[in-house]
């Protein structure tokens, strides 16, 4: 197969997967799976893909189920711990917390990794993405209560741990090598 034919096939596969998800969401919105909803979902999903095209995000790695579960588990732990921390900060008396904006350069420079890491980091309370440098894969993060969350180094390491978890779950072998070999030597 020629490279262009191969790329086109990959693009079609990505589109088909996206269409599958849209059809599923359409059926869930209606509340039940019927043939009418299936056909309607295909029409609406097709229209969404044609009229609102997004840049292709091709999935280059492979899914590792065990790493995915452990990433989800550590996300839930982080989420609960940080939610309680922010809630306590909100209600306890005293001066406002000391915050900081820190720059965290990621190791894996793909759009998918950048987006997923930013997404998970900003879902956890206490860290808020202010800006993203897409070319150099740097996240600029506002950290609420820097002293109370362990200071600069601990916060950087936490973000890199999130990235490591994501790459372990869905990254390619080479990306996995990048995050495990450089471990602990962040610039």
């Amino acid at each position: 197969m020629s490279p262009t034919w191969h790329a086109r096939l990959g693009r079609w596969r990505d589109q088909a997967i996206a269409l599958g998800w849209l059809v599923l969401i359409w059926n869930l919105l209606w509340g039940r799976f019927t043939w009418a909803n299936l056909v309607g979902g295909l029409l609406v999903g097709g229209a969404v893909l044609v009229f609102f095209p997004l840049p292709p995000v091709t999935f280059g790695g492979r899914l590792r189920l065990r790493a995915l579960v452990s990433m989800a588990a550590s996300f839930v732990v982080d989420l609960v711990r940080a939610s309680v921390h922010v809630a306590v900060l909100a209600v306890r008396p005293g001066p406002p917390p000391r915050s900081a904006i820190i720059a965290v350069p990621l190791r894996v420079h793909t759009d998918l990794n950048l987006a997923l890491t930013a997404e998970v980091v900003s879902l956890v309370p206490g860290t808020l993405i202010i800006d993203v440098d897409r070319d150099d894969a740097v996240l600029y993060i506002h950290v609420l209560d820097l002293p109370g969350t362990g200071g600069l180094a601990a916060n950087r390491e936490r973000v890199l741990a999130v990235e490591r978890g994501i790459v372990r779950a869905i990254g390619s072998a080479r990306e996995l090598h990048t995050v495990t070999v450089d471990r602990g030597s962040a610039p």
Partner: peptide, 24 residues
Amino acid sequence: AAGIGLLRFPDTLDRMHAATKPQV
């Protein structure tokens, strides 16, 4: 707690933590 944080935190960036996160 998010509502209280929204009232008590001093600036926009701090308030964003209260406004968007306990919500999750």
